[in-house]
Design a binder for these strands. Structure first.
Lengths: 157, 157
DNA sequence: GACTAATCATACGTACACAAACGATCTGGC
DNA sequence: GCCAGATCGTTTGTGTACGTATGATTAGTC
């Protein structure tokens, strides 16, 4: 009776059962995405070197560099992190002295984030590493395959 | 002086600086992979329904179903989780009564994992959902694009 | 038989990731 | 001016994910 699966046309039950019996974990997009992401973070951690940044910390720093100053939630939206996540990321970056907080003049709910001089020095060095990390992640693909892959990846976001 | 970046040919310094200045977070594979994975887990959580399984818990259950019984570390290798991670996953599955542990006859270091009847019922229902989840994740791609994307994704793992 | 190396499972610490709930503050409509 | 709803930032709880360390057990070597 498939319990609570979204109601299927009665005739589709057999086909559905076949798909269940032949389900291969290794062929599922989700599993492949998880492993690809896993490999990338391993490369990232390896190649980032002494900067000791995580991918999300790096993303936050780059965005702050691009925009000069920005509120925490806004930064979270631009880097695709929810408020709870971006809070932890910025807290650790502030603790390391790479960013600083200043109260916003016109909105007292906001704390504006800015790079410190140490932060700026680290971002520039880290971005150079970031270029190499992207290259290493894409290394298994030919020059022709890379734009195809990136374009398809963009579509499923 | 770029501090500690892996030594570059002196002539490449200018090109490297250009890449740093023009670095766009949104164009990096790592960022795209993170967001694609993020979207997939959101779909997964939404569509998995009352089974209340996470992607990794689901992967573990499917692998145990395929193999009948298996040791914890072996399961971790097959599902691409390190020993510390698979330990947490199996602990939660055991706490929910979906899998059970039995001592291995020939190797006293091992605890063999098996599905309980409740576990088996859940996996079958969950796999039907898994098929729909894969479909929903790939929905933005045409029929022609899907195998291309999966094949490229497999290459970068 | 004893020693070494490898493997298994566990424990601890750090870092994402999101849901849910919270108080503080801002804004639009009246 | 005032109130309702939205937004900002925080906190708590659960669940990956991995490095590192540890103890138990096994397997290989001498």
């Amino acid at each position: 009776m498939k319990s609570t699966a979204p109601k299927l046309p009665a005739g589709a039950a057999q086909a559905q059962d076949d798909r269940v019996a032949g389900y291969t974990l290794e062929d599922q997009v989700g599993h492949l995405l998880r492993r690809a992401h896993q490999r990338h973070t391993a490369i990232f951690q390896n190649d980032m070197g002494e900067a000791q940044l995580t991918p999300t910390q790096f993303a936050a720093l780059v965005k702050i560099r691009d925009l000069g100053q920005i509120s925490q939630n806004q930064l979270g939206r631009l880097t695709a992190m929810d408020p709870a996540t971006i809070q932890g990321v910025t807290r650790r970056l502030e603790a390391r002295g790479l960013i600083e907080r200043a109260p916003d003049a016109s909105d007292r709910r906001l704390a504006v984030l800015r790079l410190t001089p140490e932060g700026r020095a680290i971002v520039d060095a880290a971005i150079a590493r970031g270029v190499a990390i992207t290259e290493a992640t894409l290394a298994p693909l030919s020059e022709a395959e890379r734009p195809v892959f990136l374009s398809l990846l963009r579509k499923i976001i």
